[in-house]
Amino acid sequence: MEDEHGGVLFSALGEASHRALGGGLTLTSGGSTGNRKHITHSWAFNASIVPLGARMFGVADERPGVVINCLTAGEMQGAFQHAAAIVEHIGARLLPAGALMGVQRIAELIQSQTADALMCTPSFAAALFNHDDIDTEQLASLRWLYYIGEPCSQRLRDQLARDWPAIKIRSLGYSSTETGPIGFQCAHLEHGFYHLHADAMLLEVVDPLTLQAVAEGERGEFLLTSLLPDHVPLLRYRIGDRGRVLRNVAKCACGSTLPVLQLEGRVETTIKLGGAIVTQRQVMSVLARALPDLDTSDVQVQINRQANGARMRLVIAQDKLPARAEVALEQALQSEAQASALLRLPGVLGLRVQRLDRSGFETTSAGKTPFFIELGVTPDSAG
Rank of each mutant, 00 (worst) to 15 (best):
A79V: 07
G58I: 02
V66C: 12
G58M: 03
E62Y: 15
A79D: 05
G78E: 07
I86N: 00
F57E: 00
A83W: 08
A85Q: 10
T72A: 15
P64I: 01
Q77R: 15
E62L: 12
A85V: 08
I68F: 04
A60M: 07
V87P: 00
R63S: 11
G78R: 04
A79M: 07
A79S: 11
A60Q: 07
V59D: 10
R63H: 14
A54Y: 01
M76W: 11
G78K: 05
E75K: 14
F57I: 02
A84R: 06
E62H: 15
L71V: 06
L71F: 10
G78S: 14
N69E: 02
G78A: 10
Q81F: 14
A79L: 08
A79H: 04
G74T: 02
V66F: 10
Q81E: 12
A84N: 06
R63M: 13
N69L: 00
F80A: 10
G65T: 15
V66G: 07
F80R: 05
M76A: 13
L71Q: 04
V66Q: 08
A84Q: 08
I86T: 05
A73E: 09
A85L: 12
G65M: 14
N69W: 01
R63G: 04
R55C: 06
C70M: 14
I86S: 03
A54N: 01
V66H: 09
V66S: 06
V66Y: 09
H82L: 13
P64S: 03
I86H: 01
M56T: 11
R55Y: 05
A54D: 02
A85K: 11
V87E: 01
G78I: 10
A83G: 08
N69H: 02
E75W: 13
G65W: 14
R63W: 10
H82N: 12
F80N: 06
R63K: 13
G58N: 04
T72H: 06
H82G: 09
A84W: 09
G74W: 00
T72P: 04
Q77S: 15
V87Q: 02
R55N: 05
H82E: 11
A54E: 01
A84P: 09
V66R: 10
P64T: 03
E62M: 11
T72N: 04
G65H: 15
A60Y: 07
E75R: 14
I68Q: 04
A60D: 10
G58K: 04
I68M: 07
F57H: 00
V67P: 00
R55H: 06
A83D: 05
A60F: 07
V59R: 11
D61M: 05
G78H: 07
E75L: 15
Q81D: 15
A83T: 09
A54C: 04
A60C: 08
A73F: 12
F80G: 05
Q81T: 14
A79C: 06
F80K: 05
A54L: 02
A83Y: 08
R55E: 09
V59H: 15
L71M: 08
I68P: 04
N69F: 02
F57P: 03
E75Q: 14
G74Y: 02
M76C: 12
L71Y: 06
D61T: 09
G74M: 02
A84E: 08
V59F: 09
V67G: 01
I86Q: 04
P64A: 03
E62T: 15
A84G: 07
A54W: 00
H82T: 13
P64F: 03
I68K: 04
F57Y: 05
I86V: 11
G65V: 12
G78M: 09
V87M: 00
E75F: 12
